[in-house]
């Protein structure tokens, strides 16, 4: 294992996941993403470096502490408002780039960093705790993000090691990476969960930050290059953005010629990630969006079921 592969930036390790591939799985979230989907529920995963976050509920205030109001914290980055509440506030424009030198000032964990460097062994040690569940349920490890393929050496090393230890592997990817990254990781993957967010490249750029030309090229090439892998297409269904039949049918037209794409799952929009935007000083742009109604999801899933030759609605995902 080379040094580049041995360490990576991990955001979180989540146990007992049931929607990230077959069986009960442990999902490892890696940092860094090349898209900016407006509905992103993991905004803490986007940056390439550890990111400052702040939970005011854990702050004990200037009188009791106040350590972050002094250097090495940047001037003006932290402040206290007039009034009886002396807890710290963050000026996110001036706090940009704050790292461990700042968060280490905070004794209560109100200031913290999203993202921690880990080794492959660190990750596998945590993942293997759930080995019994994998064997019983047919589960395993799933790499997610962010975009796990943006740490290709680290991802490939984790997945190769997991295979060595007899653990089933999956990844969740949006595919906006150079083909070489995908080519490096996919040999070690059993199941590829991949996103088709929008069909039209201009609209894809508007809602996800970059167009989907390379994404579609990558997926097509992946289907053909790795015929023994299992692919599952997925779409996060965002009301008024991609909840139309046209998008669903165009994705079906793209995937159905490839027999190794075994399913197409729809993930209804949710707002669980919204509070995290506040903790990161970011703005949640879809302020007034609401989840799609179940009837709409059933209707769209019925189209998929029909295409896959399934009769009962709601069996896809």
């Amino acid at each position: 294992m080379n040094s580049q592969a041995s360490k990576g930036l991990v955001l979180n390790i989540q146990h007992f996941c049931t929607n990230d591939g077959p069986g009960i799985r442990t999902t490892v979230f890696l940092k860094f993403c090349g898209l900016r989907c407006k509905w992103c529920c993991n905004p803490e995963s986007i940056g390439q470096k550890p990111e400052l976050a702040y939970n005011i509920n854990k702050c004990i205030g200037k009188k009791a502490c106040g350590r972050c109001l002094q250097p090495p914290a940047p001037e003006g980055a932290m402040y206290v408002l007039d009034g009886s509440d002396d807890r710290i506030h963050i000026n996110w424009d001036l706090a940009h780039g704050c790292g461990e030198e700042t968060t280490s000032l905070c004794p209560t964990g109100a200031l913290y960093l999203f993202g921690k460097e880990m080794t492959v062994n660190d990750v596998l040690k945590e993942v293997e705790q759930d080995g019994t569940f994998y064997r019983e349920s047919g589960g395993g490890i799933t790499l997610s993000g962010g975009e796990c393929l943006l740490q290709p050496d680290f991802s490939a090393a984790i997945l190769a090691e997991a295979h060595q230890r007899g653990i089933n592997t999956a990844i969740e990817t949006a595919g906006n990476v150079p083909w070489e990254f995908m080519e490096k990781v996919l040999p070690h993957v059993d199941t590829v969960l991949h996103d088709h967010k929008l069909t039209d490249p201009v609209r894809h750029k508007k809602w996800a930050g970059a167009d989907n030309k390379r994404i579609l090229e990558n997926f097509k090439k992946a289907y053909e290059t790795f015929p023994d892998k299992t692919f599952v297409a997925r779409t996060p269904v965002i009301p008024g953005v991609n909840d139309d039949e046209e998008h669903i049918r165009s994705v079906l037209a793209f995937i159905r010629p490839h027999k190794n794409v075994v399913d197409y799952q729809l993930l209804p929009y949710h707002r669980y990630g919204e509070p995290k935007y506040r903790f990161l000083g970011k703005v949640y742009e879809l302020e007034d969006f609401t989840p799609p109604p179940p009837e709409k999801m059933d209707h769209l899933r019925a189209i998929i079921d029909e295409s896959f030759g399934r009769t009962a609605p709601g069996t896809t995902g």
Partner: peptide
Amino acid sequence: GLRKSLSPLSDPLFGEGARVIERSG
């Protein structure tokens, strides 16, 4: 332990009581 050190999101009390204006209205 590790989960908490990796991400405050693993903390079941993360964000509890935070004043977040979830949406207008």
